[in-house]
Design a binder for these strands. Structure first.
Lengths: 125, 125
DNA sequence: TGTTTACTACGAAATTATTCGTAGATTAAT
DNA sequence: ATTAATCTACGAATAATTTCGTAGTAAACA
C-alpha cells in the first residue's frame, strides 16, 4: 500500500510517538502547519479502511496505531521512487544524494561508514 | 518546479531522445503503457505553460525540448523525497537503498565504487 | 438538570492530476 | 478538388487527495 503525503505525516507521528489519539496526532502536526482537527480525523479514518492503521475503540477517544512498519513502508516508497524518478537506477539515486549539499557533512560521514561496513562484511566479487 | 509522474515520463523521453514532437513522445510512451495521443499533447502543452518544456512552432508539428536538466530535476525530487519519506535523513535513505533487494548486485558494486572514490578524494575528518 | 466541551461520523467542496473527445485547420493523397 | 490523414487547441469528464463543515452523541461541569 502506498501512503499519500498527508498519510505519511500521520504515520511518522505514530512511528515516533507510538499509539495516539486523533487529538495527539493533530497537536503534533499543528506545530508544523495549519490543519483542521476533523481533517486529521478523516484522514485517520480513511487510513484504517486502507489498513494503514488499526484502531482501539475502548475509550471515547479512540486510539490509533500504525499497522505498517516504518522500514517496510519506506522500502516501498524507495522502490517506487527509484523507478519513477531514476528509471530504476539505484546508483544514480545514491549519487544524487551524495552530490546534494542538503546532505550534511555528518550525514555523508555516516553514509561512508555504512558503506565501509558493507564492504568489510561482503565477499569481494 | 515539481514535475508530476506523467510529466516525468515525458521529461525522460526528451532527456533520452532529445527534442521531439508529440508524435515521437507518444510513440515512446506507448511502448510501456496505453496513452491517448491527445493526452500526451495536453500534458506537453501544460508543461510548456509551467516552464518545464519549450516549444518550436516552426513546422506544423511542433518540436518540444526539455527546459529543465535531468540533474537539477532529480536533485529537486530527491530533496523533496528525503524530506517527506525520511524526515530529512539522507543516510537513512541510502541505507534503505542498500538493503533493497531490488538494487541489483551490479548496482551495489557501482555504489561501493562510487563511495570508494569519494573517500579517496576526501580529506578524512 | 441544563449547558458547554470534546469526540466521531460523514457528506461534500476544493484542488490537483490524468484522461480523452470533439472541433478546426493544414497537409497529403487519390 | 475531394477525401483522408495528421496536427493543434481546448473543454470537460474522471479520479485521487485534501480539506472542512455540520450533525449527532457522550461526557464534564456549573
Amino acid at each position: 500500500m502506498k501512503p499519500t503525503d498527508a498519510e505519511l505525516e500521520i504515520l511518522h507521528v505514530l512511528w515516533t510517538n507510538g499509539p495516539s489519539t486523533v487529538r495527539q496526532v493533530h497537536d503534533a502536526l499543528s506545530q508544523n502547519r495549519d490543519l483542521g482537527y476533523t481533517t486529521a480525523l478523516k484522514l485517520m479514518q480513511i487510513m484504517v479502511e486502507k489498513g494503514l492503521l488499526t484502531r482501539q475503540e475502548d475509550a471515547r477517544s479512540h486510539t490509533y496505531t500504525a499497522a505498517v512498519s516504518e522500514e517496510a513502508t519506506q522500502q516501498g516508497l524507495v522502490d517506487r521512487f527509484v523507478e519513477t524518478a531514476f528509471r530504476g537506477s539505484a546508483s544514480k539515486l545514491v549519487m544524487q544524494v551524495l552530490g546534494n549539499h542538503k546532505a550534511s557533512r555528518e550525514e555523508l560521514d555516516e553514509i561512508k561508514l555504512l558503506l565501509d561496513n558493507l564492504n568489510r562484511h561482503d565477499t569481494p566479487a
